[in-house]
Simulated scan of single mutants.
Amino acid sequence: MTHPIDRAIGISKLTDGEPEPDALVDAARRQRASAVIAPQGNLALMNTQWITGDVGVSQPIWGVPGLWSPLPIGSCGLLLRAPASDAILVDDELVHGDVVVSGMDAVSPSRIRFSDTVTGTVIANEEGDHALRVWDADSEAIRDFRAIEAFPYDQAWVVEAKFTPDAGTSDVSIAYLKEEGKTRANTVPGEISFTLGAEEHRLVVYQDGPSWLLVFADATTGDTSYSVGRFLRVAPGYKGAVSLDFNLAYLPPCAFSYNFSCPIPPKQNRLGIAVTAGERNVLTRNSDLLH
């Protein structure tokens, strides 16, 4: 799936003439602000509840009706049991009795609707467990959203770097919020090196869908930018040349909702310099920090 920032830049480049870089970033930020308040945008996520245990043993999920239970190992989804009076629609059909709700890892994921504003999706983890995510298009967070605070555009933060592939395609252990110290092994295609302020930096990226993801922290983290860190999408160029535009650094989903579990920057990606570019924090209508 293409990231909203990537889409915005791609769309901008199709316009007549050559837009200035700051105009491209402004377009990306406008689209990003619209994306996070969408019906299943980051600010709409109300709950992520994992359904584990014995097959067929049902449990309730906070905030929505119905009883939910795991399917046999290897299946993509959850079993939902609900009477018609619960008014749950799965793929536009009213649920009455038992129905299999397919996960996002299935060929055709199920569409779940609980009310005019509340919807659901089923996700999976690497172990094959499934969870229901509950989204509310009229969430308090959406109603209270003002803006994504960002540093002003600065061409100086467009850094030319070099990508050195790892012939062995090694892994890096990434810790995640809300997973009590548990780490996941993420494939590292290689290392990115660049120089800033006469100091050389070597960072790792890892595969995330069709692109690479740089998860980093810097001297602004927890001070003038979000406390966990930030993300940057990376694409290699000709013969390993990489352009890192830190103006496109963006906040992880957990900056918008505690119901996301985001990767924590690995040790080698914690910069001692202040990267004063990209997104900083989520602001409420009163200009307070959301998190």
Rank of each mutant, 00 (worst) to 15 (best):
N247D: 13
R280V: 04
R7K: 10
D91L: 12
V134H: 03
A198E: 15
F145K: 09
S225P: 01
P189W: 01
L14N: 10
W50Q: 00
A35M: 03
Q40F: 04
D208V: 14
R113S: 10
S225T: 07
V64C: 04
C262V: 03
F256H: 00
D22P: 05
L78F: 11
V100G: 08
D91T: 08
R133S: 02
D144L: 05
Q268C: 13
T284W: 08
H201D: 01
G181H: 15
G103A: 11
S108F: 03
R32F: 02
V215I: 10
V25A: 05
V36N: 01
V25I: 09
T121E: 08
V55R: 09
L232M: 07
I148A: 09
L251C: 08
F260A: 10
F256C: 03
N259A: 03
R230Y: 04
V159Y: 00
A84K: 09
A82Q: 00
T220C: 05
T117F: 05
G103P: 05
T183E: 10
A84S: 12
H3I: 02
L232Q: 01
F114V: 04
S261N: 10
I142V: 09
K182D: 10
V64P: 03
L71S: 06
V234K: 00
L289N: 14
R7T: 15
V134I: 13
E279G: 06
T117I: 04
I142L: 04
A23E: 13
T169Q: 07
L196K: 14
S110Q: 01
R184E: 15
G168E: 06
A274G: 05
S58L: 08
G10D: 07
I264F: 01
A150E: 00
A198V: 15
H291L: 12
R146D: 12
W68D: 13
A23F: 02
G272L: 04
D208H: 11
L213I: 06
L283G: 00
A28W: 02
V25T: 05
K162A: 14
G97L: 05
A33C: 11
A28Y: 03
G240A: 09
Q268K: 04
S211D: 14
P152G: 06
V122L: 10
V205I: 12
L289A: 14
F216R: 03
P60L: 14
M46F: 02
I174R: 00
E199N: 14
I11D: 12
L24D: 00
R111Q: 14
P165L: 07
G209F: 13
G197H: 09
V122H: 11
I112P: 02
P65G: 10
H96Y: 14
A137K: 03
I88F: 11
S261K: 11
D136I: 13
